[in-house]
Computed example of a mutant assay.
Amino acid sequence: MKRSALVSALAALFITAFVFTAAAADYPSRPFEFLAPAGAGGGWDTTIRMVGKTLGDLKIISQPMPVTNKPGGGGAVNLAYMQKKKGNPYTITVYSPPILLINLTGQTKLGYKNLTPIAMLINDFGAYAVPKNSKFNSMKDVIEAIKKDPKSVKVGGTSSAGSMDHLQFLQAARAAGVKNLKEIPYISLQEGSMASLMGGHIDLLSTGMAETVGALEAGDIKVLAVSSPTRIKSGPLSKVPTLKESGIDTVFINWRGIFGTPGMGNAERDYMTNALKKMSESKEWKDICLKNGWEAVYMNADEFTKFLDKTNEEYKVILGEIGFLKQ
């Protein structure tokens, strides 16, 4: 390479590095694009909106953080969109277990490794409900029935087969010693899951804790167990045993965390990680978690990435046993 060409190349690299450093130092200097991978009102939508509101209210971030909904494909549509924003530190989204599951079950070739984990913020947990007149009074009763005849218990959930509601039941059944997991009938109920349960169309509903509270208070259902590590401290679910209390040694976490685009710069990622840490320690955020029945559990980017790697391997085992693993 001629001296003049070498000098030009080095100058270009210096200018690029200077511009990047200046941009990182100035971050954030313009409005964000916060994305919910589903429609309004769900867990992803509520989480990302509360994050943006709290960061703004506490003046942790002064730039606007409007939320756009990008539903479809269990989060796959939003995930594909994030790829188009590669390296853009102003596009931020939220995900939970489906970011792992839609990849492992072959719904998309993309997964959590095609994003930049920023921080875990909350844990939510599952619940296992039956109609009020069900013959089942405990998870032990359900497991014993399945061991005798796996087709005798119809399990339902709002997620698709192989996704979260299905998986949280299979994880409990597997931990309880059930061997033939793929023989347990699972019915995906896109809408009207509680009505299907109370109407006798399914025997057990595997769902989120919050979805069971109204029907439980009304006396229409029995909640046999929750998937949290310890008993819920207050409210109607405080009387419900955990899986561990029911003799099933497992926990299923519906975690939610914040992600950036693939190739997001380390400086910008660290800025957002620290901003979310400050938010997570505030009274305002803790009140929001209490109101929504969430457990505030902060992990920084490195801790969150390790958690995702470990959880992904655990999901592979269960999905492999029921023939849903496509990797």
Rank of each mutant, 00 (worst) to 15 (best):
D165E: 10
S193D: 08
A22L: 09
T212I: 13
I143W: 01
P66Q: 13
V155D: 00
I232H: 12
I61K: 06
S280C: 12
V251F: 12
H201R: 10
K286V: 05
S62L: 14
I232T: 10
A36W: 14
G87Q: 08
Q63A: 05
A22H: 14
K147L: 07
F34G: 05
P37R: 01
I288M: 15
A40D: 09
F307N: 12
D165K: 00
S246A: 14
V94G: 02
A23P: 07
M209F: 03
A76C: 07
N123D: 12
S160V: 03
E284Y: 06
I146S: 01
I48A: 02
G257K: 04
G257Y: 06
S138V: 01
A11N: 10
G39M: 08
L13W: 10
K233A: 15
V223T: 07
V213R: 13
Y186G: 00
A5G: 12
G247I: 04
T116A: 09
A161S: 12
Y298K: 05
A215Y: 11
K239G: 11
S160C: 02
G214P: 03
V251S: 06
L325M: 12
F304R: 01
D45C: 14
I15F: 15
M279F: 05
V142E: 04
R256E: 12
L205W: 01
G72L: 07
